[in-house]
């Protein structure tokens, strides 16, 4: 099953399980079914629960927050995550703050879905990975879609948390297969943390969000075949707040740790992860945690220029090699 089909099935299940749950966004209605087809069939199956909206990211996110404030579950799709900047106030100043600024815990079941990332030639305003701007917002959870995490469980966890969540969905994942990891690697999943590994202690632990999975595994394959360097990949579903305990346990024995993400340089999620690991493993780690990310640049449209800016398999490969020097 492709990732987008898994996501689509998960959305079906949310709307079927709760007739009051609603999905809002631009161009969601069948037969189009959303820009990336994640919502295909939903407006036909649940006509009263799926609303197509005007191009009003601020308002539709606010409407979702209003529904959540009234006790409903609301899922808002922003067509490209780049446009979430237009909804930043509603997410940061209303939805996330409402969880606690009124003195008691207010349940807010709001999920803002964010098709994200580059690699498809959409250019500077349709290719960004803006996760870092949502790290450390009190009351807000940041998740990223992954080919190793069943979206049914991920959506269920977000709803159960009763906190507003932003869900970054790397667009290149939609057409990939779920749970496909080729030999010699195997994968497992424990408490929301996916692990891709071979049956041997790793030289390097790579920590990456779901959208980077394929690039990381490709780098790991090359490192293993060409240099006999063994890597383990850890993919958390929730990027923030981060459950650092399991990362620490896995990183403790490795010679190096690399955090890889598609965000452009500066103030990254990886910097936060590195800081948390340094706090726990200072004096144990042989080298500082290394960061792999895209360049400090807008994301160009032409494919040769885009490749030069975005995080690639080679970026991760080279960062791992450097970290082991």
């Amino acid at each position: 099953m492709r990732v987008v089909e898994n996501l689509n099935r998960a959305l079906h299940e949310v709307l079927a399980a709760d007739p009051k749950a609603r999905l809002l966004g631009e161009d969601l209605l069948d037969p189009y079914g959303g820009a990336f087809k994640a919502t295909r069939g939903l407006s036909t199956a649940f006509p009263g629960q799926v609303l197509t909206t005007p191009i009003s990211e601020n308002a539709i996110t606010g409407v979702g927050a209003g529904l959540a404030l009234c006790g409903e579950t609301a899922i808002v799709e922003i067509m490209f995550s780049d446009f979430v900047t237009l909804a930043f106030d509603q997410i940061v100043n209303f939805a996330a703050k409402s969880v606690s600024m009124y003195g008691t815990r207010v349940p807010m079941r709001l999920i803002v879905r964010l098709p994200t990332g580059g690699g498809r030639g959409y250019g500077p305003t349709h290719s960004q990975s803006l996760q870092k701007h949502f790290i450390g917002v009190p009351g807000l959870d940041v998740y990223e879609m992954s080919p190793l995490h069943d979206n049914r469980a991920v959506l269920a966890a977000m709803i159960a948390s009763q906190r507003p969540c932003v869900f970054f969905e790397d667009k290149v994942l939609y057409t990939k297969r779920m749970h496909q990891v080729d030999d010699p690697f195997t994968w497992d999943l424990t408490d929301g943390l996916a692990r891709v590994h071979v049956d041997a202690p790793p030289d390097c632990v790579i920590i990456a969000p779901g959208g980077v999975t394929h690039r990381a595994v490709a780098a790991m394959r090359r490192l293993l075949i060409e240099q006999e360097i063994i890597c383990t990949l850890l993919v958390p579903s929730r990027l923030h707040p981060l459950d650092v305990t399991s990362l620490v346990a896995a990183a403790r024995g490795a010679k190096s740790v690399v955090v890889a993400e598609e965000s452009t340089a500066g103030g990254t999620w990886g910097a936060e992860v590195a800081h948390r690991l340094h706090q726990e493993l200072w004096g144990v780690l042989r080298n500082p945690v290394a960061l792999a990310h895209s360049a400090d640049s807008v994301i160009p449209t032409a494919s040769h220029l885009e490749r030069a800016v975005l995080l690639t398999e080679t970026t991760i490969h080279d960062t791992v090699l450097e970290s082991l020097k």
Binding site: V63, L67, L69
Partner: peptide, 21 residues
């Protein structure tokens, strides 16, 4: 009853509540 301190922020939320109601 809910109040917020950002201008204009409440109207989309109120629209959501109105949708609920």
């Amino acid at each position: 009853y809910v109040s917020t301190g950002v201008q204009g922020e409440s109207l989309p939320v109120a629209a959501g509540a109105a949708l609920h109601l």
